[in-house]
Design a protein around this nucleic acid. Structure first.
Lengths: 341, 341
DNA sequence: CATTGGCACTCACCACCACGGAGTGCCAGA
DNA sequence: TCTGGCACTCCGTGGTGGTGAGTGCCAATG
């Protein structure tokens, strides 16, 4: 079956190219992989593969390089799952177990992911929209100023300063606190917002009237703040230094993208649940300038309920199998930790 | 006075080199700056400056380049303060005024600072050690689990989960909350820790005994957590792309340093109060590998009480006057905002 | 018909060389 | 003390030829 061998050739080309960063020729191929055929045969196969668009040569008389389409075929049909070593697994779990709060979990995740993959890692904070309200605390700071603290099921804590029109009364504050919690606690964010809005419309006779409106306003603002849905952590930018060549074409736009969190989020794409890892290769992504970079991402969250996305950004020429297992593993560990908290 | 002219020559060399990134020769110098003397004279001056170690030539028959010592003299004696344009000022203030909480203030500061200087900006979060406790909130999450929220004068909010040995009683919790706040509120962190420790040692008969210890432990932990003193925000890494040449020598180590927050903090150095801007040029810094990068930093905080440091990291060849005023300005604005909050 | 060895061909890469130009150091004269 | 002149140094550029890895094609083979 030549068809099969052609795929074997493609796989060999991808693997060699990823390892050496250099166009791979027919001779080197048969030597390094035991293909059992002569270079000439391989050359014929390569000609076909090139016709079909899976590989190209940078210039005549150079070896072949996989195209985006080639990588695509490779990840779809040719990768064999690469299990993580025990040492790596242990490293991940012990490192992540030391986290003290959500911030810390996220920070450590980027770190471990970037070290594992030797690539740029990106972790999105659990989105507000899928969290439920765990508790609302109102703290008097000054006679006419209080701090509203919003504690969410995911461990996120948001705070807002609230300025009041009238001096604060302890009893009223306690009452307000109680009501707000009765209204919001346990609710999904979206529902909590609408429920709270109702609470804000107090009859002007009620002693709550003066306080409720601004407090509700602040809480609703904190809950629907898009800014906080865009929170992400980035790590491993130093790995970009390894690109060496292709600086302008690859590193520069990527560095710029790393600053633009909105761009990064779009790059990561929709969170996919259930251990599915998404791979976006080169020009498949939404940004032209990043046509030389690939994204390997997956969703994470307790009970495989994808709260947010996490992944790795790197050159199209990357170790897809290894990266995919690393991403999958980290997502699983993070999910477990969020489950416990 | 030749001495004076020599300094003028040095200044001109620095300015030209910063602008063009190329070694500057005697002829170009007299043309671009109205020095009123011939190239030959300038050459003599340059020979002297080279003898004294302020400039070098990369190779014979090339122009001159300032040395670290040359830059040092330049910033110490030759810079004229460069005021910010009105537009810039307005941009800074409006951009920073939109911040909703401390996190946001810090994020926006890095952003504006990196854009202003077109360099990598670093902002340290206000250190815990200099904050006072504003309020402690204890929130029951489950019968045997509560969340301790620590609100500090600087706007920082730290949280810790606390697991208990026995089920929670509302009254006891209220009592504990009251006591903790009485003990800690208003205190400087260090004092609060010791005071709280005292509170933890309850007679075993007291109903508080079971709860106080773990809560106090968690709070003390949050207060003395070194990790949180190392929190910083970094921005503008994309500006590194402009280095172009000198990639290995400058960009790579810097990228690595940006990941190591401890390193960055050491690089920023001690916070200096009262609008004083510190400049560290090349090898003056603590890291050999960063001998091609300079740091321009200053402290910030309400009432010029330096809570933390903020600054810019860039190539030794940078626009010192401009960077210094930008750093000073941002520090001032941030301080003012923290003052109001 | 797939596979193979052979062969001519194509280019990127490197080393070498020549040369123009920017910049210097030095010296003699103002 | 400054200036013009002059010889010198080297970097950068561009052209040239050789080498080698790699290819495509073809005829021969099982």
């Amino acid at each position: 079956m030549q068809e099969e061998r052609r795929l074997a050739v493609l796989r060999a080309i991808v693997e060699d190219y990823v390892a050496t960063e250099e166009p791979v020729g027919s001779k080197a191929l048969v030597e390094r992989h035991g293909l059992g055929v002569s270079p000439a045969t391989v050359r014929n196969d390569m000609a076909v593969l090139e016709d079909e668009g899976y590989i190209t040569q940078p210039h005549t008389s150079a070896g072949r390089v996989p195209t985006d389409k080639g990588y695509r075929l490779f990840v779809d049909r040719l990768t064999t799952v690469k299990p993580m070593s025990v040492a790596e697994k242990r490293a991940v779990s012990t490192f992540l177990d030391g986290a003290v709060d959500l911030d810390d979990v996220v920070q450590r995740s980027v770190r471990v992911l970037s070290q594992l993959t030797r690539q740029v890692a990106v972790v999105q904070y659990p989105t507000l929209s899928r969290s439920t309200v765990r508790h609302v605390e109102l703290v008097a700071l000054a006679p006419r100023r209080l701090l509203a603290v919003l504690i969410l099921s995911t461990g996120r804590v948001e705070q807002r300063l609230v300025d009041l029109e009238a001096d604060l009364d302890d009893d009223v504050l306690a009452d307000l606190r109680l009501r707000v919690n009765q209204t919001a606690t346990g609710q999904v964010i979206a529902d909590a917002v609408t429920a709270l809005r109702g609470l804000g419309d107090q009859p002007p006779t009620s002693p709550l009237a003066v306080y409720a409106a601004p407090v509700v306003e602040a809480l609703a603002d904190a809950m629907s703040d898009h800014r906080s849905d865009e929170r992400i952590a980035v790590g491993g930018a130093a790995n970009l230094a390894r690109y060496g060549d292709s600086f302008d074409s690859a590193v520069r736009p990527l560095l710029e993208a790393l600053e633009e969190h909105v761009v990064l989020l779009k790059l990561l794409g929709e969170a996919t649940a259930g251990g599915m890892v998404t791979v976006r290769i080169g020009a498949e992504g939404p940004y032209e300038q990043l046509s030389a970079t690939s994204v390997v991402a997956t969703g994470y969250g307790p009970q495989d309920d994808a709260l947010a996305t996490l992944g790795v950004v790197g050159p199209t020429r990357m170790d897809y199998p290894g990266t995919m297992t690393a991403v999958r593993a980290v997502a699983r560990y993070v999910s477990r930790i969020l489950d416990e908290a």
